[in-house]
Amino acid sequence: MFSNLRAPEIILILVIIVLLFGAKKLPDMARSLGKSARILKSEAKAMKKEGEAEGGAASEAPADAAQQAPRTIQAAPGDVNSSRPVAEPNRTNKS
């Protein structure tokens, strides 16, 4: 369907997008999209690290969960203004 798009059609589509959204909003939209992508990437990396840490240290239980510092989630790497604490579920092993 889109295989026969040539330069004039692509330019026309871009002009329509600029007219619909406005030239002022496009950089902000692109910036927020990039920020969202960075957040998603950092969260996926953190989840992967947690999964590897739980797999390797599954036999080692923490001595006291209250002694551990609360974890925080940041909206973007280096953004300390929007960080908030995360309540982690208590895990009890009944095996």
Rank of each mutant, 00 (worst) to 15 (best):
S36N: 11
L5E: 13
V15A: 11
Q67E: 06
R71D: 08
D64L: 02
G22Q: 05
L5V: 02
V15N: 12
L5C: 04
A7L: 07
A46E: 02
N81K: 10
A75R: 01
G34T: 14
L26K: 10
N93P: 00
A87Y: 04
A65K: 05
R71Y: 05
P85A: 01
L12P: 03
S83I: 09
P27Q: 12
P89T: 01
N90F: 06
A30L: 15
K41R: 11
N81F: 09
R38D: 11
N4D: 07
A44G: 01
S83F: 06
S42V: 05
L26M: 14
T72M: 04
A23C: 13
L20E: 11
Q68S: 06
S32M: 15
L40T: 07
D79L: 03
E9V: 08
G55E: 10
S95R: 07
A7M: 12
A58W: 13
G56M: 13
A37Q: 09
A44T: 03
I17K: 09
G78S: 05
F2W: 13
D28F: 14
A75K: 04
S82P: 01
V18S: 12
K25S: 15
G78L: 05
A65V: 06
G55F: 08
A46M: 01
K41T: 09
A69C: 03
P89Q: 03
Q74R: 09
A66F: 07
E52C: 05
A37T: 09
A75L: 05
D79G: 00
P8E: 00
L26F: 14
A7Q: 11
L19T: 10
P70F: 00
L12C: 09
A65Q: 03
A37L: 11
M47F: 05
A23D: 15
Q68L: 09
A87W: 00
K25F: 12
I11G: 01
G56L: 14
S32L: 14
E9A: 11
F2D: 13
D28G: 14
Q68G: 03
G55A: 09
E52I: 14
T92M: 03
S42T: 06
L14C: 13
S36R: 10
R84Q: 01
A53C: 08
E43D: 05
V18W: 13
L19M: 11
P8N: 00
